[in-house]
Design a protein around this nucleic acid. Structure first.
Length: 111
DNA sequence: GGTGTGACAATGG
DNA sequence: GCCATTGCCACAC
């Protein structure tokens, strides 16, 4: 359909930026929503390029399927990601999102 | 055009 | 039940 020129990266940025406040999602969920359930790694890689984007991407709302802040290291400071999450009423303990299961937001359902 | 990578996920032992 | 390994797919060099 329209706008199929966008690369997977663009879609990842789009979905990630659509994550509602106070919610989190997983790389696999986004990848699966994009149709590439096996490319969960691509989602993280796309966010890696998010540093080159002019627009801010709430990548701190994206964690691995365990709810761990795996990519906190890529935020510049290992505490930036946790601080951002706590700033959104999301409790983070031991680099893990508390009640991650409840805060989980499906990019496909949240459309 | 081929190789390597990469912020994961799933399966096996 | 936990640790280790493979698979995966799209992008960058």
């Amino acid at each position: 359909m329209t706008s199929d020129k966008e690369s997977f990266f663009e879609r990842v940025y789009m979905v990630t930026s659509r994550i509602p406040y106070g919610r989190v999602t997983t790389y696999g969920a986004i990848a699966r929503c994009l149709g590439s359930s096996g490319s969960a790694r691509m989602v993280g890689w796309a966010l890696n390029n998010c540093h080159s984007l002019e627009e801010f991407i709430p990548a701190h709302r994206v964690v691995n399927r365990n709810g761990f802040l795996t990519g906190k290291n890529h935020f510049g400071t290992p505490t930036a990601m946790q601080q951002l999450l706590e700033n959104e009423n999301i409790s983070v303990a031991d680099d893990r999102v508390v009640r991650f299961r409840e805060l989980f937001w499906d990019p496909c359902s949240g459309r």
